[in-house]
Structures are given as structure tokens and as C-alpha cells.
């Protein structure tokens, strides 16, 4: 761990100003990922700007939806009554991840900015294009059973590890950010990016920008939703494949379908074609299989993760079945429904 300066900001403006244009500065809230990365010498910030005192820890009504402050803890968010009743998919996804202790500390803004758990990214003894651009990607052809099957590049096959973000992608949240050039809103689908030839960049934040709120639209999918997470043990493991699914149904007919996958790409993975395919169709296993087939058709395996393609196909079908039946996966009993 390197030595760093520490600044505590009292307001959002102070935080942005303190960050300035220092490329070595980092905002810190819960620190559940950043501190680990510092211990591994992956992140070596010259300056930490503590934003935990900023007034961003409330959940407020806004335009029929909810506005979530960037500092609301994952636990507070998951257990908030409005979230549980109106956005149970988000609550469920958060509770599928990490541990109670981590969820108590981790913030909303930190969760969406957490970095990949690729083994090579964490190991400064190996090359990694995300850590050291241009050094190479040994995960390709290496130990990669947890890596991406969608949207990877020759430079990087890492996945985004968040569960919460998969739900936010399905719910079509908006990320409000502020920075040296003022405020702007980023649609969730545009927030994270694919690695391309610049895998060092996880998202589309500009230098010095910080997340202020995450806004949930009015459409809430309170009845027909699920977050199904498949992993190598039944708790405290990142997803091999996860599925956030939500429907608006007219009887058995699908009015709106939302589907996002986790653990399979550099960002929460959506396929709008597959969602469109389901629209107006009966909520049947055959239609779910067709959507799943469409999604996995563009999957590309690495040397050790080919199984994730078939696993994703099956998980999509099961997730859509759970959502359609109104029997969402519980996160307390690990038995898959």
C-alpha cells in the first residue's frame, strides 16, 4: 500500500474541487474495494478524498420513481421499505451479493464503480491491460473460468462483478454525476463500457467526475421479477452467471420484458433484440428459450469458460420463468426456485 494524502470534503462542490484534475486522486466512501486494491498495489492513489460526510445518504421520491444518494449503503438500500415494495428486484440483487458486513459498509456509488475480480488484475506480478495498459492479458488462455463470454476484446476478458448493477441495468436507472464541467445524467446502459482496446476504463465517467445519485424510473416491476445468481458456492462468491428479469404482463402476454445478465461481460449485459422478441408474446418456456438462444448466439468462450454459455442459456430460461410466475428467487434460502 502506498502513502497518500487524505482530504475530507464537506460538500459535493468541495469534493469535486479537491479532486481537481489530479489523475492520482480517488474518492473514497465505504472503501470495501478500494482499500483491497491499495493493499494489492493495484490502486496507488496519491490523494484520497473522503466523501462520507457529503449529504448524499438519503432515498427520495422523484417523478414517481426514487432518487438514491450515492452514499446510501447497500444494506440500507436493500432493506428500505420503498425499495422492497416497489423495486424488489434491486433489493434482491443487492442481497445476493457480498456479505452482511460488506453491504453495511459499501455505498451505492462505490458499488457501481467497483472493479473486476479478474485474478490477473489483482496480481501485480502478472501483466494486465486493465492495470498496466499495453502489458498484455494473460487471462486469455489462462485461468479464465470466471471470465467474460460477451463483449470481450483481445485486450481484456474481465467481467464486472456487481450484482446491484445488473438489477439497475434491467430497471433502466439513470446515474447523475457531477464534475469539473458540471452535472450530467448517464443512462445506466451507457455508464459501464466494454473493454475494447482501452480496458483500463471501466466506465464513461470523465476525470474528476463523481456519482451523486442513482435515479430509478417510475416503472417498478413489483410483481414479476427475479434475480437469479449462479455461483461456485451458495453464498459469498461472484456470479458465474446471474439473471435480472422483469416483466409487465397482460394476463399471460408480455407487455414489457427486461433482462440483464451479470458475471458474463465487462458490463451488465443486455440484449434489446431478445427483450423485443418477448414483447407481445405469451410468457411460455418456448418463448423464453428462443430469447435465451438469441442472447447466447453471440457468446464467445475462452479456454476454460465455455460452460458459462450453456449455463447462461439455462439460467435465462429459469429466470424468466421465475419472473413470469411471480416467484422470485429468494436470497435467504439458497435453493433455486
Amino acid at each position: 500500500m502506498n502513502r497518500f494524502d487524505y482530504v475530507r470534503a464537506g460538500t459535493v462542490a468541495e469534493a469535486v474541487q479537491a479532486f481537481g484534475s489530479d489523475p492520482s486522486a480517488r474518492f473514497i466512501a465505504g472503501g470495501t474495494n478500494l482499500i483491497d486494491l491499495m493493499k494489492y498495489n493495484v490502486e496507488k492513489p496519491g490523494r484520497l478524498i473522503d466523501i462520507t460526510r457529503l449529504p448524499l445518504n438519503t432515498i427520495e421520491e422523484r417523478d414517481g420513481g426514487l432518487r438514491i444518494g450515492a452514499l446510501v449503503s447497500n444494506a440500507d438500500l436493500a432493506y428500505d421499505d420503498r425499495i422492497r415494495s416497489r423495486y424488489p428486484l434491486l433489493s434482491s440483487a443487492i442481497l445476493a451479493g457480498a456479505s452482511a458486513q460488506l453491504r453495511n459498509a459499501a455505498s451505492t456509488g462505490g458499488n457501481i464503480n467497483q472493479r473486476t475480480r479478474c485474478y490477473y488484475f489483482y496480481d501485480e506480478g502478472t501483466p494486465c491491460n486493465k492495470r498496466e495498459p499495453g502489458s498484455g492479458c494473460p487471462a486469455i488462455g489462462g485461468v479464465n473460468r470466471i471470465h467474460a463470454i460477451f463483449g470481450a476484446s483481445d485486450a481484456c476478458i474481465a467481467t464486472h462483478p456487481s450484482d446491484m448493477c445488473v438489477a439497475l441495468a434491467a430497471l433502466e436507472a439513470t446515474v447523475q454525476v457531477t464534475g469539473p464541467d458540471g452535472d450530467r445524467a448517464i443512462a445506466f446502459a451507457d455508464y459501464h463500457r466494454l473493454p475494447g482496446d482501452d480496458p483500463a476504463k471501466d466506465n464513461t465517467l470523465k476525470p474528476g467526475e463523481m456519482v451523486v445519485t442513482v435515479d430509478l424510473p417510475a416503472k417498478d416491476y413489483g410483481q414479476h421479477h427475479t434475480y437469479l445468481k449462479l455461483r461456485d458456492r451458495l453464498s459469498y462468491a461472484f456470479a458465474l452467471v446471474s439473471v435480472a428479469a422483469a416483466f409487465e404482463l397482460d394476463g399471460q402476454t408480455i407487455r414489457t420484458a427486461r433482462l440483464a445478465l451479470g458475471g458474463v461481460a465487462h458490463k451488465p449485459w443486455r440484449n434489446l433484440e431478445a427483450e423485443a422478441l418477448l414483447q407481445g408474446k405469451p410468457a411460455t418456456r418456448e418463448n423464453f428459450q428462443a430469447a435465451a438462444d438469441l442472447i447466447v448466439a453471440e457468446a464467445k468462450p475462452q479456454s476454460e469458460n465455455g460452460f458459462k454459455i450453456e449455463l447462461a442459456r439455462r439460467a435465462i430460461v429459469r429466470g424468466l420463468e421465475q419472473a413470469a410466475a411471480g416467484t422470485p428467487q429468494t436470497q435467504s434460502d439458497k435453493r433455486i426456485q
Binding site: R117, Y119, D123, R233, Y236, A237, F238
Partner: peptide, 17 residues
Amino acid sequence: RFMNRNLGEYHVPANAD
């Protein structure tokens, strides 16, 4: 090199298991 050198990625049973 062993690559999964932490308790997040070297899996031992969790309570749920």
C-alpha cells in the same frame, strides 16, 4: 502461479453451503 490467492476466489464452504 496459483491465481486465486484470496478467500474471495479460493472457495471454502460458506454457511449457506
